[in-house]
């Protein structure tokens, strides 16, 4: 991946000027490249990485394994796009292995997710089966370690 993208993935709040200094190119070049990446849809958006356990958010997240019958012509695409339309669905991935799609769903509570599965997913006639796994605790999210026990900091001055 190009270095500019890696830098933005680490910290999307870096200014074009900061990136320019770090990479030894001009600010205008950085701005133009970012604009192009956005236009090409390489950069889809920017968001904050939040430790939800530290907020008052009381919702739940589930990973749902879905097995489906591929549709003639569309394969898995049509179904996957359709499921992805739901606002509750945060992610949707075609998988190799024992099931076909992994669907990440956020809901207010267990029942909320259960209702989504029962009413929205299972009722679609291409769905053969679903298995719902609730996320209990987050250890790492989007590359960030969470809930790491504190350690003694490093020295402030050393040779």
């Amino acid at each position: 991946m190009e270095r500019l993208l890696e830098l933005l993935k680490e910290n999307a709040r870096l200014s074009a000027g900061d990136i320019a200094t770090r990479l030894g190119i001009t600010e205008a070049e950085v701005a133009a490249r970012i604009a192009a990446l956005e236009k090409e849809g390489v950069i889809l958006g920017y968001h904050a990485v939040v430790d939800r356990e530290k907020t008052d958010h009381s919702g739940v997240t589930a990973f749902i394994e879905v097995r489906i019958t591929p549709e003639s012509g569309g394969g898995f695409d049509r179904f996957a796009r359709r499921v992805s339309q739901y606002e509750q669905v945060r992610g949707c991935y075609l998988m190799s292995g024992a099931y076909d799609l992994a669907v990440v769903v956020e809901g207010k509570d267990l029942y909320d997710v259960a209702r989504f599965v029962a009413e929205k997913l299972s009722t679609l006639d291409v769905v053969l089966s679903t298995a719902t796994h609730f996320q209990l605790r987050t250890y790492k999210h989007d590359g960030f370690m969470l809930n790491t026990p504190p350690t003694d900091g490093p020295l402030l001055v050393s040779p």
């Binding site: 490093p154 020295l155 402030l156 001055v157 050393s158 040779p159």
Partner: peptide
């Protein structure tokens, strides 16, 4: 303190 004083 923000330290730039280390050698590591």
């Amino acid at each position: 303190v923000i330290s730039l004083g280390v050698g590591e």
